[in-house]
Amino acid sequence: MLFLRRTLPLALAFILGITGIFVFYVPHSTSQLIETELALWDRIIWAFAMLLGIYSLLKLHLGRVRKQQAGWGYSFLVFFGFFLMFIFSVYNSGNGPFVPRSNAPEDPFNWMFQYVQVPADATMFSILAFFIASAAYRTFRARTPEAAILLVAAIIVMLGRVPIGAVISDFFPMASTWLMDVPNLAAKRGILLGVSLGAIATALRIIFGIERAYLGGGE
């Protein structure tokens, strides 16, 4: 059991990790063939990971419905939405699941997407504007010199990125462009380099079996 639970995953991570790095940088035809094959395997694993995700989601919400936990009605809606869309997808305008999916607007799957999912998602995100406005008023205070600089920069960018800024003064779009092109770029590049070095270090730790959290915790 220890072999299957620990040794085999560690060996696979090591072999595939080293192979993945090697074939990415070696332009030999054999290396390219291996890379093509590995890329295909990865896509297949992704597809199975999506199935696993659906299973985990449904299992979680089934538990909530069974135990009638607070808000279990929402969990019931997860099942309702999932199975309704699944049935519509299989129905496929009466053509069944083994032909290309219909893109007709009147197809029930497309109709549900266009007139339920799109407005619902868009509404959720549009609510952010209200909360951002309230949060900005409450928290955006020039309590320190650094906060004051951030505040001034934010106001310049907020005005510079919309047409009204140019109507007020050409300074706003120009200053906004400079802020994005110079200080923002410098900060983003620094963050990016730090994150990338961290990601490389973590990847090496996983490949060499130092980092084992992905194997699952505890006994």
């Binding site: 406005a133 900005a136 309590r143 907020m158 005005l159 919309v162 047409p163 800024g165």
Partner: peptide
């Protein structure tokens, strides 16, 4: 949408200025 976005940006900026003025 630019009219709405410009107006909302202005409203947020005015509230930020108001909040800071009251704070100081």
């Amino acid at each position: 949408g630019m009219g709405a976005q410009s107006t909302v940006h202005l409203i947020i900026i005015l509230f930020i200025i108001l909040g800071n003025a009251m704070y100081f």
